[in-house]
């Protein structure tokens, strides 16, 4: 397909469409597979580093700062603290969401790294740093972070800034 004009006058061809269709079989790897199976079963699993003892979630099979394999699974709580967030006014998702919506970095109780997820069941104007939130599981779970539909306010007092300031 081209968007050039009539021939003979040598009107040049400006461009064409070049379709690419490549089929892959994605392999999640060991650590991610355990994490994703956990989500299917309604559990959030992190992994503890044998050297620095920090718990990484999602686990990726290695401690990124120590450079050693991580094997020990740690089941995390479903409640955590919003460390920071943004409010989104345009849709990026295949699922049309009601605008605006909030997405936040959340440090789950027992974890040392943050998950990024949706905050719902609260007006966006009330979302705040330090807010305590709880995971709400999707009706249908699978090997995806979408097994957690969103996080909602946990109804606890806000966490003090000092408790999460290292997770920004």
């Amino acid at each position: 397909m081209s968007d050039g004009g009539a021939d003979d006058k040598i009107e040049i061809v400006k461009g064409f469409i070049a379709p690419v269709r490549l089929r892959y079989t994605v392999n999640a790897g060991r650590a991610s597979s355990r994490f994703l199976r956990g989500l299917t079963e309604g559990r959030i699993l992190g992994q503890r580093c044998p050297v620095c003892h920090k718990v990484n979630v999602p686990p990726r099979g290695a401690c990124p700062t120590c450079g050693v394999p991580t094997e020990e699974d740690v089941q995390l709580g479903e409640v955590g603290t919003v460390t920071t967030f943004c409010i989104i006014n345009i849709n990026f998702d295949a699922k049309a969401r009601e605008l605006p919506y909030a997405a936040a970095s959340i440090v789950l109780d027992g974890a040392d790294t943050t998950l990024f997820h949706l905050i719902q069941e609260v007006p966006v104007a009330k979302v705040r740093m330090g807010m305590r939130v709880r995971a709400v599981w999707a009706a249908e779970r699978g090997p995806s972070l979408e097994s957690i539909d969103h996080f909602k306010p946990a109804g606890e007092p806000d966490a003090p800034y000092d408790s999460y300031k290292d997770h920004l």
Binding site: T84, F85, F92, D93, S105, F116, M129
Partner: peptide, 21 residues
Amino acid sequence: LPFQPPLMAGAGGYFAPIIRA
């Protein structure tokens, strides 16, 4: 991509919380 975290916010969604912080 299969198994990847769902895209919730685009590129700015990564940096906006940092700016807020």
